[in-house]
Amino acid sequence: MNNHLPISISNVFEKLRKNNKKALMPYLTAGYPDEKTFIKLLKEIIKNGADMVEIGIPFSDPLADGKTIQSSSQIALQNGTNINRIFQQLGELENRYKVPLIIMSYYNPVLQYGISKFLKKSKTAGGFGLLIPDMIPDEGIAIEDKCRTFGVDLIYLLAPTSSAQRRQLILKRSQGFVYLVSVAGVTGARKSLPGKLNRWITQIKKESRLPVCVGFGISDLTQAKSVVRVADGVIIGSAIIDIIKKSSGSQEVVSNVGRFIGKIRKGMDNVKS
């Protein structure tokens, strides 16, 4: 494949479908544990089989995040990370268009940077999707229009508490894929997922024209395998940040994360749906 030809989020899902595989989407906080290691981690998880990577822009007040991602954001900000530096670093990556990046940012940093400027730089850096945890379709009309202009998919979250009416709204307005929040709550690894989860995913899949991916709380291979029996992909965030934190300062931080992703990839690919 020509690495310089941008591929879109829908291309990724198309290819996965053909190969009868599900999407693995790890999350990293930009600038964590430091700027250099962040880029090494990004390369390593791509090498170990990530189909897309969610990149969190650190924010001072991440109210949808649990302790793990909160503290990674705080450290990244203390390291002096900012949007300019993040886009610059991502833009310098070789093969940057091979794996689409999903940029996750709270709304205020996007708004203050300038929505159009943010989207333009994001796209150039390989950010094909934008996920704003404090943005709902009711407030999103203006930003959706701009996303279309710049060819960036705006991904909305769908929650277990969303009514049937809100579910229709979100499924209609999402671009790229639909992000299902597995449980009512903030991000963070959980020992168990709700028993009804797969029934809910199946229901959403019936109604959705877009691929359906599940995030929040998915922390190990068993959970990932269970979810992709029905969903089109998984997002794994806090579990990775936990590994980085635990191996912080050691030489093995990058290889530890790579091994974890590799294991999930292999395990997921053996699941029959």
Binding site: D134, L158, A159, S162, S163, R166
Partner: peptide, 9 residues
């Protein structure tokens, strides 16, 4: 209303 969808209900 700039909140996570979970709170909308």
């Amino acid at each position: 209303r700039f909140v996570p969808e979970t709170l909308m209900a």
